[in-house]
Each structure stands twice: as C-alpha cells, then as structure tokens.
C-alpha cells in the first residue's frame, strides 16, 4: 500500500513540474513579450521597457520560470502586470467561490445519479428503465451553459422564483446566497448527473450478475437488501473513479457557467485576465486549475486503493 502511495506521489510531483513548464512556455514564451501584450500595440517603447524592468521580464526565461515556480510553492502568485496588485489573494477569494459552486453541483449530480442509475440498472429491461436511459442520453447532450440559459428562462424570467445571476457570500446573506447558488449548481449538476447516471447504471448492472449476489439471495436476503449490502460497495469502485474525473470536468465547466450567471469565481478571473491581456493572471489561474485537476486525480487513485483492498496487493 505504501509503495503505491509513494509511486503515485512521485508521479504527481513529476506531472506538476512538467505541467508548470508547459504553462509557463505557452504563456510566457509563445506570445512574445508579455509587457508588450499587457500594454497593447500602441504603447511607447519606453513604457514597455519600464514595465519589463519593473516585473523582471528582462531577465533570462529560466530565471523568470524559477522565480514564478518558487513563488507558487510559497503561495506567492506574483503581481499583476496590469492592475499592479498581488494575484494570490484574488485567486484565493475566487477559488472559494468556484469551490462552493463545484461541490454544490457535485451534490446535485449525486442526488440525481445514484437513485436514477440504480433504477435504470435494476429495471433495465422494462419501459421505465429504458425511458430513464433515454432521458439521461438527452441530458448528456446538453452543455451546462445551455442548461443554465434554459433554467434562467424558466425560473428567473418566466416564474421569477430565483435570481437570474449574481453572487452573495454565505456570511453576508445566507438566504440570498442559496437563492443565487441554486440555478448555477443545478445547471452544472444536472448535466454531470446525467453522465454519472450512465456509469452508476453500468456499474450496478455488472454486479447484478455476480455470484456473490446470487449467494446473498440464496441466503434469504431480498433483492434490495442484497444489492445494498453487497452490490453497492463493489459498484462503488468504478463510480468513485468517474466521480473524481467529473470533479475535474466540473471545475472546468464552472468557467463557462460562471460566465452565464456572472459568478465571481476563478473562471471569471481567468476570462477577465485574457480580456485585460494580463498574462500573469492567466498563467496563475490556469496553473491553479491544472494543479486542482492533477490533485483530484491523485486523490481518486488513492481512494480507489482504499475502497478496493484487492488493488493494494495487485500494484
């Protein structure tokens, strides 16, 4: 078990280093001069030189990379070329907002997918199972931002039950916070729920044919109890893997949904950074998202081993 953990940690560390080099290379080398990009084509040569000196952009690229990567390790994300304010606190604030949105969406996805997936598997030859299957197939085809627009049309424009957009921190006004969180979390969560449903269904279908389930039935357990006692834990292994991968998808999906609902999360910061040509902010936010995705995958790998004891020795 510990060998596996060490192996995975080494892979994570290597991945983080390579990913940071890629992000740095794409956003610091390819566009040419970040100072020129930040100031725009009409800037004077002196202004560009001054900005370059101010932010150390005239130093060799290796030094700039080491400076940036070292800062990341210390939690210092540098100072924005455009607003001249530190990026770290901004990213921390925005990460909190995106984190809340992603977790709420994950909750919605689970609440939808677990019961629906089990019903679809247990009744997969019946009309109800086939109908649910068809609904989930349509759900998979709807992008989250489209779901968001449709939800706004129905619940904000027509029914006027919920606000169309905006964000209030939970401490400031808990009721408003929940009202504003509902539609973005639903639009991200329902779509992911449709995807997850299909995995839950096939995981349950797989265990339904297993001998141990038949044995449990033979011992006198009802079909439902046999499934809950023996089936769900076995079905959990593939589902947890998908859940982890989906957490990463949700994080990226949040970038778009935040734009739809004007939520001040990481996605908005990233898109504003691109619009303001603030390449450091873009680089930092991209790196934070990449780190989050890699970290989630790493944790899923570990959880995978924890859930299924058979994998501990196999690896």
């Amino acid at each position: 078990m510990w060998v596996t953990v060490l192996q995975r940690t080494a892979i994570l560390a290597a991945s983080l280093i390579i990913a940071s080099v890629v992000v740095f290379a794409v956003l610091a080398v390819l566009p040419g001069d970040p100072a020129r990009v930040a100031l725009g084509v009409n800037a004077t040569e002196e202004a560009v030189v001054r900005l370059r000196e101010q932010f150390g952009l005239d130093r060799p690229l290796v030094v700039q990379y080491a400076d940036w990567a070292g800062g990341l390790l210390r939690g210092d994300l540098g100072t924005s070329y455009v607003s001249k304010s530190p990026v770290g606190p901004q990213v921390a604030d925005r990460l909190q907002v995106t984190g809340i949105l992603v977790l709420a969406s994950m909750l919605v996805a689970l609440v939808v997918a677990l019961p629906a997936g089990v019903v679809m598997a247990v009744r997969h030859r019946r009309l109800s199972g086939l109908l649910l299957s068809a609904v989930s197939q349509v759900g998979v085809a709807v992008p989250a931002f489209l779901a968001g627009i449709l939800l706004i049309t129905v619940f904000a424009v027509r029914l006027r039950w919920l606000p169309a957009n905006g964000w209030t921190p939970p401490a400031a006004d808990p009721v408003m916070f929940l009202e504003q969180l509902t539609l973005p979390a639903l639009s991200l969560g329902l779509v992911q729920g449709a995807v997850l449903t299909r995995y839950v269904r096939s995981a349950i279908l797989d265990v339904l044919h297993e001998d141990y389930l038949r044995t449990a039935r033979a011992k006198g357990l009802t079909a439902g109890r046999a499934l809950v006692r023996h089936g769900l834990r076995n079905a959990a292994v593939p589902v947890v893997t998908v859940l982890g991968l989906q957490l990463a998808t949700l994080l990226i999906g949040a970038v778009v949904v935040e734009r739809v609902f004007v939520v001040p999360g990481l996605g908005s910061l990233l898109l504003d950074g691109v619009a303001d040509r603030d390449l450091l902010v873009v680089r930092d936010v991209v790196m934070v998202l990449v780190v989050a995705v890699l970290l989630v995958n790493f944790l899923v790998d570990l959880l995978y081993v924890a859930i299924d004891p058979r994998l501990r020795r196999a690896r």
């Binding site: 990913a19 794409v26 956003l27 990463a248 990226i252 990233l270 691109v274 873009v282 990449v290």
Partner: peptide, 23 residues
C-alpha cells in the same frame, strides 16, 4: 501513456483559453 495522462490535466476548454490568450 504517462506523458499522455499529463494531457488530461489540460482539458480542451482550458487549453483553448490558454492558446487563445497566447495567440
């Protein structure tokens, strides 16, 4: 395969925004 796994850390949307910011 490990190197390709690394690409999974750059979903299409993020990669496109990054390339869009650069080019």
């Amino acid at each position: 395969m490990r190197l390709l796994d690394l690409l999974l850390a750059f979903p299409a949307l993020l990669l496109a925004i990054m390339l869009g910011a650069a080019f």
